[in-house]
Design a binder for these strands. Structure first.
Length: 451
RNA sequence: GGCUCCAUCGUCUAGCGGUCUAGGACACCAGGUUCUCAUCCUGGUAACCGGGGUUCGAGUCCCCGUGGAGUCACCA
């Protein structure tokens, strides 16, 4: 039975890279009808952020990633679980106490020594560190890379397993938990690759059993290098608030580092679960460019009903527009929505008459004639419906020798204040007769005043 | 600098020795539909990092360069 876990640290908000790891781990487990476990790795007291856990749970939920089991490492620590394991390793001579002051990598530079000076001092208290054996080759098969990766233990340092504050480090906590929780596949970020030999040794000394391990690629900034929380948009919630649909974000992120044999691109979560194959993992780092996200978002928006989109607009946009009005407007702008939040700029013309911009008219004199004729045609109409509006209109236009496109462009600019709008007759229908005529008259006035 | 990973169109990728004059998607460009824009449809531009091998034959295997990435904490 496949059991995977998503094991984030609550040190900030869930970002797109975390989400992707979670999705892959989820799909891997569910593809085999196994379990997906959420484990909070809060063993770093200094970087702990209390709001982090809620953020993780909330986001996993909005993306439909349900966990079957839930653990918190700080809770497990209280039972002495990690402490006992660390002490047992010392008693077996696989680990040792150390009382050196904690190092700081940044200050140490590149020249930190691999073998700890305390390893043969036979101390009986302090931090506990792993006793790495000399002259061994240690290796594992990476199920993402689909190849064996190996190290010479002489290049591996005596990593700390238990800190002086009694908390385990990741090296101990995650491996002990993975074993204890019977995790079958460890899927984690590529940045863990260098400490894998440490973990391999921990597994060996603990039980000799070892889950399969796979290291995911890193999502990189469009400009190259690490995704920056300052420069790039990276947080899941931020995308949701910007008007991206969870299904679009999900689909986009799935494709960032994974592809099926047939190169299919559109996936819902359950479809992804069904088609998941670890051989589809990419080996090189993808760049986080959002073009395809935008396309996917538009695609998924267009698949939704107007009622569904109305609800999304309501929850995402602070607006007092009544629901039925939103629903009424949607058919006019649905094809133009890239993000749900685009609803606001696309519909503003329906609520407030845009200022007349004379510069938009290519030939104001001709447009003036168009508009006058428009007023004449429209004011006589009692049946303010699409059929009523359009009845005989184009014939009138053509009869006066005008191009239909030019004519409607004049009208469009007059009532919408833009050259890019929904179809003009549809717009007039929503606006109503009075408002439409009012805007036309205003535009006529403006042109007259300017000449 | 040591260790480790990676390398196909601008981007995401298919390809796992011959079917590759390298396929798809996004983006871009052009055309069509349309009263504009958008949607939609059709077409187009565009890539195997370099050099050596192995082989009858290499994008596909090996080696060396080069380039990119990660990491070197009592952080995860």
């Amino acid at each position: 039975m496949t059991r995977t876990r998503f094991a984030p640290s609550p040190t900030g908000f869930l970002h797109i890279g975390n989400l992707r790891t979670a999705i892959y781990a989820y799909a891997m487990a569910k593809h085999d009808h196994g379990q997906f476990i959420l484990r909070i790795e809060d063993t770093d007291q200094e970087r702990y952020k209390p709001e982090g856990i809620d953020d993780i749970k909330k986001n996993l939920t909005t993306f439909g990633l349900k966990w079957d089991e839930y653990y918190v490492q700080s809770e497990r620590k209280k039972t002495g679980f990690y402490q006992k394991i660390a002490e047992k390793l010392v008693s077996q001579n696989h680990a040792f106490y150390c009382q050196c002051p904690a190092k700081n990598a940044k200050e140490e530079g590149f020249s930190s020594t691999l073998r700890d000076p305390c390893r043969d001092k036979k101390l009986t208290s302090g931090a506990i560190k792993l006793r790495v054996p000399d002259d061994e080759k240690i290796s594992y098969f990476d199920f993402v890379l689909q190849k064996e990766v190996s190290w010479d233990t002489n290049t591996v340092y005596d990593a700390t397993l238990l800190k002086t504050d009694g908390f385990p480090t990741y090296h101990l906590a995650a491996m002990a938990d993975d074993l204890d929780m019977k995790i079958t596949h460890i899927l984690r970020g590529h940045d863990w690759m260098p400490s894998t030999p440490v973990h391999l040794l921990v597994f060996r000394f603990l039980t000799g059993n070892q889950p399969q391990i796979g290291h995911l690629t890193d999502i990189q900034s469009p400009n190259g290098g690490k995704l920056s929380k300052r420069r790039d948009s990276v947080f899941c919630e931020q995308f949701i608030n910007d008007g991206y649909l969870p299904e679009a974000i999900l689909n986009f992120v799935i494709l960032l580092g994974w592809a099926p044999k047939d190169n299919r691109e559109l996936f819902t979560l359950s479809e992804f679960v069904q088609h998941f194959d670890p051989k589809g993992f990419q080996k090189s780092n993808p760049l986080f460019t959002q073009d395809k996200l935008n396309w996917l978002n538009g695609h998924y928006i267009r698949q939704k009903s107007d009622i569904e989109i109305t609800q999304l607009v309501k929850t995402l946009v602070k607006t007092n527009i009544p629901e039925d009005k939103i629903t009424q407007l949607l058919p006019l702008i649905k094809d133009r929505l890239v993000k749900i939040t685009d609803f606001v700029p696309l519909t503003s013309l329906f609520f407030e008459a845009p200022p007349v911009d004379l510069a938009l008219f290519t030939d104001p004199a001709v447009s003036l004639e168009h508009l006058k004729s428009g007023v004449q045609h429209l004011s006589s109409i009692d049946n303010w419906t699409k059929q009523g509006l359009e009845l005989g209109w184009t014939d009138e236009i053509k009869a006066r020798g005008w191009k239909v496109g030019d004519y409607f462009m004049s009208v469009r600019i007059a009532i919408c204040g833009s050259r890019q709008t929904p179809p003009t007759t549809d717009t007039m229908l929503v606006l109503g007769k009075d408002e439409t005529l009012k805007r036309l008259e205003t535009a006529i006035q403006s042109i007259n005043n300017s000449s």
